[in-house]
Design a protein around this nucleic acid. Structure first.
Lengths: 206, 206, 206, 206
DNA sequence: CATGAATGAGCGTTCATTCAT
DNA sequence: GATGAATGAACGCTCATTCAT
């Protein structure tokens, strides 16, 4: 059968990633085959390999995409605020909590606690922490300059704080309390950063 | 030919786990086959299924074993000290740092940063954090009673602290600075727990 | 489905080679799949890879087997005769002609002139010439000692003579005249070898 | 964007054959894809099928081209000499030896002994022998008329002689001695043809 | 004439699992 | 208990070919 001409040439990779994102959500990584993805995308098997070198390649692309969405949200949140380091930190915290609570963005998360999804899950967590860390780091450095934070190694402190946030996912597997736990954790994090002032506990209204 | 009589019947499962641990270390999870494991153990394929329901089953057993070793070390460290919560916390920190620096215990760790080993790596990290958390939690509760820690939710705080420690692995992928970073992080952790006293910076001599 | 226990364990490789030989004959090399072979052998696909590393591997084995049969026939023919070099040469020629005329042994040959069978065909021709050459060479050397052949380089002469025989396959693609042409060629070959006596034209009765 | 206008329309088939010849040389037949060819030719996939019916088609064209070059060289060598059959035979032999020793003409030859190139190699050898045979045949017939050759079947004898030459390639796989072996073989060939005169051993100066 | 995105049947290969012995 | 030959579904991936533009 001859190839069907597409209405929107150039949209294939995106369609495939979207399809992969959906299939990954539904079946997990180990049980997701390339056939599943192309079926979901309405494409032929060969088309897949026109745009992606391997199954791993597209999984990375999915992870990349989701991570990018979260990082974008985080950067936007931080950029909006031109106030002090503590406010920025709270804004960042809110962005993360919002994203974590957003079912659409976290489609994959529902399946993360199934063992077969470990792989993407952690690939993403790694990506996320790696890309969020510089944002936190700049906030920490700002706080040190402002004199509200007291840390010797901003790099170390940033990872520590983010790692602490990430662990909550494991601490509250049912996710119902996750968003609120992230908020509660702010106090722990600010303390770790040497903040001694009043704790800004109220989450920002959505 | 009758089956070879074993010198120690009942030792099979342990032999298989040991073999799996070795093979996992050498080849990663994805590239490790049941054949590899039974070959390394000097057993037949069928024998494997006498003791383990599946390949996943034995991988879990390996992870379990390693995690148990770490937990044992941690519990021993904490038990040895009958002094205050801060000292216990430092002792626990030392145990983790020691274990992390110990090549024998971390055979697998060398390969953890190879993408194909994500799976075990994170399965173990999860196990570890889950089993270490209660220990931390008891220390935190002790500290709260002693009045040196100020935390509202000991469960949350324990996970936060352990997550922070775990993230350091990602922050320092080369592992050469990992052990020292764990020590440095103690200050951040104690601060997060609301500790306001002098920081016990000196690591325990090896 | 569980494995069927074989009545004759150890017979698998031979069965697979036999099946491959048949399929190769029927479908050619390029169109012969591993599935075809295992279907013909009544085995499962995995069983194939228990005994052969790849499709190429079994094709080599088939070629090897046929070549061996021809070489065996040639050696037997030469060994039977303890007379002079010319008689031995004629005996060898007869063995080759007989084998060439034998439909059973040359099952594959029927298909050799189809382009897709080039590969095995030539792999076999190469094997054959390489293994027949030493036999010819010993005859040539004997003839030289007996004073009936005059050649400077027995190695060269042997290959030349065998190459000449082999080319007849190309000269008479319909094979109906092939056996007789081989006989006729004896005169050319003996002349090339410097034989000046009477030509032993009569083929040996079967 | 309109298709690029070609500087020389009508040159496409030649460009594709040249590209195929190059790719075939570098990668072998089995590993050479249509994509490789069109990429090397700077053409689009579709363009390929404007001029060639299939991949096999262009491979045949490449073989054809090389064979034609050799046949042209052979015919030229034979035409130059209007002397006797023996001289013509020697001239033909020289042309073949020269061509065989000429790296440019035998680009493909370097790769011929890699197993994956069997296919073209032999397709070409077949072509070559088939097209050279009529030339040899006319020389043989001339020699018979002149009384210097004694053969009953010129057709048979021609193939025998060419087959003998071709086998030398197998006898001397390293090719360093191939050209000299071809020369040495002349004596064997002339003898086979019934030539009883003095042997014209000296190769023609290059 | 020329394009190249799309096709999809088909390939060789793997390996966790079974069970007759 | 122990064996290991046998299984076969399932996989990721290739590439000659087509045709709407």
């Amino acid at each position: 059968m001859p190839p069907k001409r597409r209405t929107d040439p150039g949209a294939r990779p995106g369609e495939l990633i979207a399809a992969a994102r959906k299939v990954l959500t539904q079946k997990g990584v180990a049980n997701c085959t390339v056939s599943d993805i192309v079926d979901a995308a309405g494409a032929a098997k060969g088309t897949f390999y026109l745009y992606f070198a391997s199954k791993d390649d597209i999984i990375n692309a999915v992870v990349e995409q989701i991570a990018q969405e979260m990082v974008d949200a985080a950067e936007e949140a931080v950029a909006e605020t031109d106030s002090g380091a503590v406010d920025r930190f709270v804004a960042l915290r809110d962005a993360i909590a919002t994203f974590a609570a957003d079912a659409t963005s976290w489609e994959l998360a529902e399946n993360y606690h199934r063992p077969e999804n470990r792989a993407v899950h952690d690939r993403m967590a790694e990506q996320l922490v790696a890309r969020l860390a510089p944002i936190v780091e700049s906030i920490v450095e700002q706080g040190v300059e402002e004199g509200v934070f007291v840390v010797e190694d901003a790099h170390l402190a940033s990872w520590f704080v983010l790692g602490g946030l990430r662990a909550l996912e494991l601490a509250f597997p049912d996710r119902s309390r996750l968003a609120s736990a992230i908020v509660d954790t702010t106090e722990l994090a600010l303390r770790a950063l040497g903040y001694a002032g009043a704790m800004p506990n109220a989450p920002r209204p959505a």
